[in-house]
């Protein structure tokens, strides 16, 4: 008999309003964006552009950085802070080119034994015609596969919105951290409500049912640690939020120090293999 011991989310009455409030906070344009985290968390940052195939996708930013004397590769979704930036980076919705750029940069980091730190904040991968034509599904699949096999430590931080496959494509980490008011979900509450409730306005019910808050995800075993936010949320105090992120990232990197890089893919696989509650 297969031993299935599902990690149950805390059984409590669905608080539709609470979950949707968190979704709204996670999407708050006043929250720190990738450029803010780079400025406040990293001591220096050198951006690298392009996927070497077709494009430079501004929705996904990659570059080498120093965080507290540690050299790392940073890769993250960028939603942009102003309307012009929003347009330029497509509100953080990456095209295949973005994921291919991230894979290229991660391979470079692996080559020189540099740890990877990813920042996740996206409504999802872009659902567009060109995205499909250039292989959005293949790009995401390949990014997930590539990350699963990286022989260098990977730390992921979900800072705002973790939108489905477009988020997971850069979130296959050895350590997965999540900000207190971030959300991470298989589908947006609106999308889920449209399908299962046949009414997009039921998003609050869907948000509660999907269990997408940091505390729910930690209970389910999908994230390792919750990064506390300053009172009122990260949007109220960027510096304090960034300081908490920096501390958590450095702690996670330290945990991975001294681990044989060759053993990382097997350990990472074991971590994701456990998600879902089966023991072989």
């Amino acid at each position: 008999m297969a031993k299935n011991t599902p990690a149950k989310a805390p059984a409590r009455a669905p608080k539709a309003k609470d979950a949707m409030e968190t979704v709204k906070t996670a999407r708050d344009p006043a929250r720190p964006h990738l450029r803010d985290y780079i400025r406040l968390v990293c001591d220096d940052f050198t951006e690298l552009h392009g996927d070497r195939l077709a494009k430079d996708d501004r929705a996904l930013v990659c570059g080498f950085a120093t965080i507290g004397k540690r050299k790392v590769l940073v890769a993250g979704h960028n939603k942009g802070a102003t309307v012009e930036e929003n347009m330029e980076c497509n509100f953080g919705m990456a095209n295949p080119d973005g994921y291919r750029k991230a894979m290229r940069a991660m391979a470079l980091a692996e080559k020189f034994h540099v740890p990877v730190v990813t920042f996740v904040d996206t409504p999802g991968a872009y659902p567009g015609r060109e995205a499909e034509e250039r292989g959005q599904a293949e790009a995401i699949a390949k990014a997930i596969e590539t990350m699963s096999a990286l022989k260098t430590p990977v730390v992921t931080v979900i800072t705002g919105e973790g939108g489905s496959g477009g988020a997971l494509a850069i979130a296959v980490g050895d350590r997965i951290l999540m900000l207190e008011n971030a959300v991470y979900s298989v589908i947006s509450p609106e999308g889920c409500a449209g399908i299962l409730w046949r009414d997009g306005a039921k998003a609050p019910e869907a948000a509660a049912a999907l269990k997408i808050t940091a505390h729910d995800l930690k209970a389910l075993g999908a994230v390792d640690a919750i990064v506390p936010e300053p009172p009122g949320g990260a949007q109220k105090d960027h510096a304090a939020a960034a300081a908490a992120v920096k501390k958590a990232v450095l702690a996670a990197l330290k945990e991975l120090d001294g681990v044989d890089p060759e053993s990382l893919p097997a350990a990472r696989y074991a971590k994701f293999r456990r998600m879902g509650g089966f023991s072989a």
Binding site: A7, A9, A141, I144, E145, S148, A149, S164, G165, L168, V172, Y184, S185, V186, I187, C192, I195, L196, L210, K211, I212, L217, L220, G221, A222, P265, R268, Y269, F272, R273, M275, G276, G277
Partner: peptide, 18 residues
């Protein structure tokens, strides 16, 4: 993905790809 199984269904993408 099977949305009724939430985030753990999303994680099966990572598990199966690996």
């Amino acid at each position: 993905a099977r949305m009724q199984e939430g985030i753990l269904s999303l994680m099966q993408m990572a598990k199966t790809s690996a």
